[in-house]
Simulated assay, not measured.
Amino acid sequence: MIRPNFAAMPIADLRAYVLNHRTDDEAFYALANRVHTEGVELQSLEDLTKLIETKQKVRENQSE
Protein backbone atom coordinates (compact mmCIF):
# COMPACT_ATOMS: atom_id res chain seq x y z
CA MET A 1 0.00 0.00 0.00
CA ILE A 2 1.32 3.43 -0.92
CA ARG A 3 1.30 5.78 2.06
CA PRO A 4 0.00 9.30 1.56
CA ASN A 5 2.50 12.13 1.95
CA PHE A 6 1.10 13.68 5.11
CA ALA A 7 3.56 16.58 5.03
CA ALA A 8 2.32 17.64 1.60
CA MET A 9 -1.40 17.28 2.42
CA PRO A 10 -3.40 20.41 3.17
CA ILE A 11 -4.35 20.35 6.84
CA ALA A 12 -8.07 19.96 6.04
CA ASP A 13 -7.33 16.86 3.94
CA LEU A 14 -5.08 15.46 6.65
CA ARG A 15 -7.79 16.02 9.26
CA ALA A 16 -10.33 14.22 7.06
CA TYR A 17 -7.86 11.38 6.46
CA VAL A 18 -7.30 10.96 10.21
CA LEU A 19 -11.04 10.89 10.88
CA ASN A 20 -11.50 8.24 8.18
CA HIS A 21 -8.47 6.18 9.23
CA ARG A 22 -8.70 6.31 13.01
CA THR A 23 -6.19 3.50 13.54
CA ASP A 24 -3.44 5.16 11.49
CA ASP A 25 -1.15 6.41 14.23
CA GLU A 26 1.34 7.90 11.78
CA ALA A 27 -1.36 10.12 10.28
CA PHE A 28 -2.59 11.18 13.72
CA TYR A 29 0.91 12.14 14.83
CA ALA A 30 1.49 14.04 11.59
CA LEU A 31 -1.71 16.02 12.24
CA ALA A 32 -0.82 16.55 15.91
CA ASN A 33 2.58 17.92 14.89
CA ARG A 34 1.03 20.23 12.28
CA VAL A 35 -1.54 21.75 14.64
CA HIS A 36 1.04 21.96 17.43
CA THR A 37 2.88 24.55 15.35
CA GLU A 38 -0.35 26.61 15.58
CA GLY A 39 -0.38 26.30 19.38
CA VAL A 40 -2.92 23.47 19.60
CA GLU A 41 -2.25 20.31 21.62
CA LEU A 42 -3.85 17.06 20.42
CA GLN A 43 -3.57 14.09 22.72
CA SER A 44 -6.36 11.97 21.24
CA LEU A 45 -8.99 11.77 18.52
CA GLU A 46 -11.46 13.16 21.03
CA ASP A 47 -9.35 16.32 21.22
CA LEU A 48 -9.50 16.54 17.44
CA THR A 49 -13.29 16.18 17.46
CA LYS A 50 -13.61 18.92 20.11
CA LEU A 51 -11.32 21.22 18.12
CA ILE A 52 -13.39 20.74 14.97
CA GLU A 53 -16.65 21.39 16.84
CA THR A 54 -15.23 24.54 18.43
CA LYS A 55 -14.03 25.91 15.10
CA GLN A 56 -17.42 25.18 13.52
CA LYS A 57 -19.21 27.07 16.30
CA VAL A 58 -16.87 30.04 15.89
CA ARG A 59 -17.54 30.12 12.15
CA GLU A 60 -21.30 29.91 12.72
CA ASN A 61 -21.17 32.78 15.20
CA GLN A 62 -19.11 34.90 12.81
CA SER A 63 -21.59 34.39 9.98
CA GLU A 64 -24.56 35.55 12.07
Rank of each mutant, 00 (worst) to 15 (best):
Y29K: 13
A8V: 13
L14D: 01
F28H: 00
P10Y: 13
D47C: 01
A32P: 01
A16D: 07
A32E: 02
E60A: 14
R3A: 15
L14S: 06
L48Y: 05
F6C: 01
R22I: 07
G39D: 05
S44R: 04
E38R: 12
Q43T: 03
S63T: 15
Q43D: 10
K55S: 09
V40W: 08
R22V: 13
T54D: 12
E60L: 11
Q43I: 02
L45K: 00
F6W: 04
A7F: 10
Q62T: 11
R59G: 07
V18G: 03
K50R: 09
Q56R: 12
H36Y: 09
N20T: 08
N20D: 12
S63W: 08
D13T: 15
V40L: 06
R15F: 05
L51E: 08
V35W: 01
N20R: 11
P4V: 14
S44M: 07
E41C: 09
Y29P: 00
E60K: 12
S44C: 00
A12W: 01
K57H: 07
A12F: 02
A16L: 08
K55E: 15
N61R: 15
P4A: 14
V58H: 05
S63A: 15
L51T: 06
E41M: 09
V40I: 14
H36E: 06
Y29T: 14
E46C: 00
D13R: 13
T23Q: 07
A32H: 01
M9S: 12
E41I: 11
L31C: 02
K50D: 09
K57E: 07
L31H: 01
F28S: 01
R22M: 10
L48M: 05
E41W: 13
E46R: 00
R59T: 13
T49I: 11
R34C: 08
F28E: 03
V58Q: 14
A8N: 08
N20I: 04
R34F: 07
P4Q: 11
L48F: 01
D25Q: 04
Y29D: 08
K55D: 11
A8Y: 12
P10D: 15
N20V: 09
Q62L: 15
M9Y: 06
N61D: 15
E46P: 03
I11C: 13
V18H: 00
E60T: 09
R22N: 09
L42P: 07
D13N: 15
K50M: 05
Q62V: 14
I2C: 08
I2M: 04
Q62W: 09
H21N: 15
F6T: 00
Q43R: 14
I52S: 12
R59A: 14
S63P: 14
T37G: 08
E64G: 11
Q56F: 04
A30N: 10
A7R: 09
R59H: 07
T49M: 07
L51Q: 03
K57V: 10
